[in-house]
Amino acid sequence: MFTLITSDDIFRSNVGAALYHTGSLLEGTEYFRTHSHGFELRPFSVAPGFRLDHKRLDVGRIKIDFARIDCGKVFEVIQVCDPGYYSCRIPITGSCEYRLHNAKWTLGPGQILAGNPFDSIPKRFVAPYTQAILSIEVGALNEVLAAELGHPIVDPLRFEPIPSAGPAARLLSTMVEFNWMTFDTGTAATHWRVARQLERALLVGLLRAAPHNYSVEMELQSREIAPHYVRRAEAYIRANMARDLKMEDIVEESGVSSRTLFYGFRRWRQTTPMAYLKAARLDCARMALTGASVAGGSVTDVALGVGYQYLSRFSSDYRARFGERPSDTLLSVTRQ
């Protein structure tokens, strides 16, 4: 939640690009289409007093857009094509509603919502609505994620499209405010070295605040660098999870005794090697199911593809981890 600056502060400031303002519905919708790169603004009805204010702040490879929209009534934003970037919405005033997984979600101040370039989820907004939107180059986010994990990104990063709140979300909002105020106080922050550090802080903050398919791996890693044998075992697990891996296979690959390997995973990952294997399989399965509507496949195909031999065990483990059956995930994505 923004606590240090208000939407009026944002649109009065000289920070970033020049303020765009229009009271014309026709001009506003065309401007929105042109500058959002893949989204369209669709009011449900024509009402007097239309207003669109927009400013943009560039922080390295991140664009922070501040938009205030008032259509007099409810309006909708539709994704018409892949915009080619990840995004994060931070409401300042107003609320946003959308349906997902047979449930209705409401996004408002104090929450954030991360979006994937390949997901299209229509959102309905209650005007007047003001938000900050982070638009992030795919390569920039993957670069920081790989550095945080300590290995290349093999599977595409996929954010869970559900509102997030709590300390991490508040910290991200505060960092956006900090960037705005930093740029407002002078030109020092525009130096490329400073902008690079501000960019990285925002990206790490987003990866910590919004749930995604690498969240578990990030949380399992402690601040200390794990020993080489733990990282070697992890890499072996990720590369061979589709096989019928046994504990002795992982121990042999690690190059240390089973006792040492168990201690290493407990000390640096707060888990066990086999529990890490299960988490890796289920995370991979969830991502495969969310893409099955496009790539094709079934729950059975996905279960076998990540190394499960028994469908009942897969369904049980999946439900325990994600709170829904694999078929529910597949069906909800197919319906979007």
Rank of each mutant, 00 (worst) to 15 (best):
F118K: 08
K73P: 07
C96S: 14
T34L: 12
H21N: 12
R68W: 15
I90Q: 13
K63Q: 04
F32E: 03
H35I: 02
I92K: 00
C96D: 12
N102C: 14
C96P: 11
D65V: 03
G49W: 00
L113S: 02
S120W: 06
P43L: 04
I64F: 11
S45C: 12
I92N: 06
S120I: 03
S13W: 01
A114G: 06
V77E: 08
F75A: 07
Y98D: 06
F118M: 08
A18Y: 10
L52R: 11
I62F: 05
S120R: 05
F50C: 09
A114V: 07
G110C: 00
G94A: 09
I121F: 10
S13E: 01
H35N: 14
L113K: 05
P109Y: 04
G49A: 03
P43A: 05
V46D: 15
S13N: 11
G49F: 01
F39A: 10
P128S: 07
I92Q: 11
R124V: 15
W105I: 10
R42E: 14
I69Y: 08
R42V: 00
L41G: 01
L19A: 08
V59G: 02
C88T: 06
L26C: 02
P128N: 07
F66D: 00
G38E: 05
H101E: 12
S24K: 11
S87M: 01
F50D: 06
A103F: 15
S24V: 04
D58G: 04
I92E: 06
